[in-house]
Design a protein around this nucleic acid. Sequence first.
RNA 1: GGGGAUGUGGUGAAAUUGGUAUACACGCUAGCCUUAGGAGCUAGUGGGGCAACCCGUGUAGGUUCGAGUCCUAUCAUCCCCACCA
Length: 960
Amino acid sequence: MRRYNPKEIEPKWQQVWAESGIYKTDMSRTADKFYVIPMLPYPSGDLHIGHWYNFGPTDTVARFRRMLGNNVLTTIGFDAFGLPAENAAIKRGIQPAKWTYSNIDSMKRQIAQIGASYDWDHTLATCQPDFYRWNQWLFLRLYEKGLAYRAKRVVNWCPKDQTVLANEQVVGEDNVCERCGTPVIQKELEQWFFKITDYAERLLDDLETVEWPQKVKTMQVNWIGKSQGALIKFRVPDTRHQIEVFTTRPDTIYGATYMVLAPEHPLVKVITTDECRPRVEQYIEETSHKTELERKEGEKHKTGSFTGAYVLNPATKEKIPIWIADYVLFSYGTGAIMAVPAHDQRDYEFAKKFNLPIKQVIMPCEDDSTNPPKEEFEEVERPTVIVHLLDKSTGKYALLDWHESLEGITTAVMGGIEKGQTPEQAALNEIKEEASIKDAKITKKLAWVTGARYCASHKQQNRKAVAYGLVAEVENLDNQAEIAASEKKLHTLVWVDKKEVLDRLTPEHQKLVWNQLWDETSLDDEGELIDSGKYTGLSSAEARDKIVADLAKEDVAKEQVNYKLRDWLISRQRYWGTPIPIIYCEKCGIRPVPEADLPVILPEDVEFELSGQSPLTHRPDFVNTSCPECGGPAKRETDTMDTFVDSSWYFLRYLDAKNDKAPFDTDLINRWMPMDHYIGGIEHAILHLLYARFVTKFLHDNYGLDFEEPFKKLTNQGIILGPDGQKMSKSRGNVVNPDEQVNSYGADSLRLYLMFMGPYEQGGPYDMSGIAGSRRFLDRLWVLVGEFLEAEGPNNSKDLEIAATTHKAIKKVSRDLGQLGFNTAIAAMMSLVNELYKIKAETGISQSTGWRFALETLTQLLAPFAPHITEEIWESLGHDSSIHISNWPLWDDKLVAEEVITLAVQVNGKVRSEIVVAADITEEDAIAAAKSDEKIATQIAGRPVKKAIYVPGRLVSLVI
RNA sequence: GGGGAUGUGGUGAAAUUGGUAUACACGCUAGCCUUAGGAGCUAGUGGGGCAACCCGUGUAGGUUCGAGUCCUAUCAUCCCCACCA
């Protein structure tokens, strides 16, 4: 018998497949099309285990669908533009183009080892002119519609290298250039943008229509960051300036005690008074140099500066000061906020630090769940004190356990504030009444009032308590008098340790007061308005609408939806990317390159100057051109496009990769899209997938695509970690080299192991000895087939049993594979092999129909996972066409069904025995059989069975 | 601070979605194959107990005839976003 030698059969079949073209897709057959691809890889020149984990299982899905009868298209290409090629060029003096193409060649060779069923007629590399010319085409279409525009934006700039730096190239705590160590500055440059924000709402809404992991959808929702609120104008008195703010809480406007502008806000320069100007300018200077780290630090320690100017609060008509602070972001909303320190944590911290006024306008007010108001009673508002009394000699606090109708309720000392009383007086009074202590002193009063609704049943009314929280202290209890009998009847006074108080208090409101006493924070939740003019008493929700509507009448407010999503900055001051097809003419200004002149070719022989600037700027033959409008001298845009532009539509180009008249044939695209299954890493959850969705929607609106979402179904594979459970990295020395694994075990074993090691979306550490198990499984199958081929005799007494076992495996594998349950599907095939070995041990192996059926079927089930060995076995079993275009086996439920089944028998919920019964047993018979089982009979021991439950096919449960 | 995920043998994991917990694999143990093997085959492998049995899915409660699965609280680990007004 031949030994299983993957080194021999894998290259052999890869060549056979390439020559026979069995994976070439007939693009005209679309009724049962299935389009599945892995995400576009970057050609780093080295195929790592993560690529295998992406490409292998994706190919398994493709092969499974192909065997099911779908017309499958799967292919791969290269995301070939980008910074690493330029870095290589600078470091090693190789042309980026040459470096990239050579990487693509070596990656193609490595990819071939996987044995994937790619149709290479559909591949592409984004750095080829016949691809990127259509990037330029896309740019022109967007430009035409006003969705590509130019605006200023600050960038990281290295003054020495005269170049723009990506965020990742700014390193160190002091923000220096990665290359030369010069401190990086912020510089404003004209940049090109795509107006993705126009699509924000649709990008949000249509997420509901796709079959994606919830996690990715949530990430996109958060990224788009929709919030509903209002724009409100604040007038600067004695000037014609107005400052607009965005707020989601117009209901808190009466509490807006100051305003904050972002340091970059254009009005800062205008409104700042001469007196404050030096300090303000210094602050702006400081914040522009802040590092990420310092800015994060700012979450704890707010900084800012007063401008000396004021605005009018349109609700209160009061003058409030204008500050600048970097906790307000220029890029969000209007770059200005109304600060409501009582009801926003950030404003609160700022106000505390700079001693700005804090005014409460929202009162939390909820029903007391321990004593809720009753519908039939009227509501009466009642000012209340909640006072926590500390006995300093013991460190314990006083609590009241209430009796009678309030049984089970525990509160602090509390009571109403009578007319003319201050909260402090009322508190001391209650201490006197309820605790009989006369020498207590008030030591703390809570800044907020808090409300709660409860039922005062003895007065036949509901009460809205508006509570002042206080702390009082008493030196010791030497002077405590006997508590009056009338009070004792109502409640018992208990003294408890500080840490127990919260656990003992029962009404939510009491807990809130206690917590606020020790850790006072702003009240960010909604509630009831207080101290807000005519809106006092309304709920936040009611007030929000009314206030905006009223201010809108004066034209100072309007409802507004705001998004965190920014427009897509596509300019890169880089060489190795798609040239932006724009020409600057001295006379005519900005002119797009006419479509007929595309592509604007990126020169591939360039010199990298020491200056660090894009080599394009030093290429007169590229830069100098003539104006398409007037024919006069003009200059080309030397910026290139973000590589995310390439990946935002490459999957459309795959389908029609050789079209030289158009980016793609729209009819063809409409028949093949949306993509049925897209598989790749979660790292692209936001940008790539969002941009692809945006471009698809744009093409839907403007270029005849009849679908709005590109990817029907998305799967994120997990991350393969090193054997030590850490992320693989060269410095850690835990990188698993797939070539070595293939060399030792074969590509089929590697593919199989990667899919067997755990749930696909989970990933996990690569176990160097785990792959041996996958190889062993393939070996065992190989041996079994070998023995079958050499066996004698046509019939086998176990044929029926073999058939039943095989049908069960078909069912399990088919179902699991359908939901990407690779690991359990493989386990089922391993089980089948184990079963076959058992049967072989019992009755031997023979050339029976049962054995042939089992081995052929098993090989087919395995084919999508391990394409080479299964093809070899298939051939040895006498087939002359590829297993990969054979029909996926079907199971027969009749054969899967067991004739006799084993039922578990539970007594009082515990399994006590098992009974073997006919599969179609009735409930009655099953219960009777269970009762008569020997072990069960002793368990029951003559006691009456109160209840008997039969779960068909599973168990009988007896309750005695 | 906000959002999400995950806790099951020595290890990776499974459990038909509320029905016999630990399938499958790694590792380990023993035996077999007369060659010292990164080979193969067979058997065993959650913990405790001589046993009948008892215990067991991070922890503590709850619902249920029955809970890894549902509910409440709690602990731990990981990931993402993060001053978004």
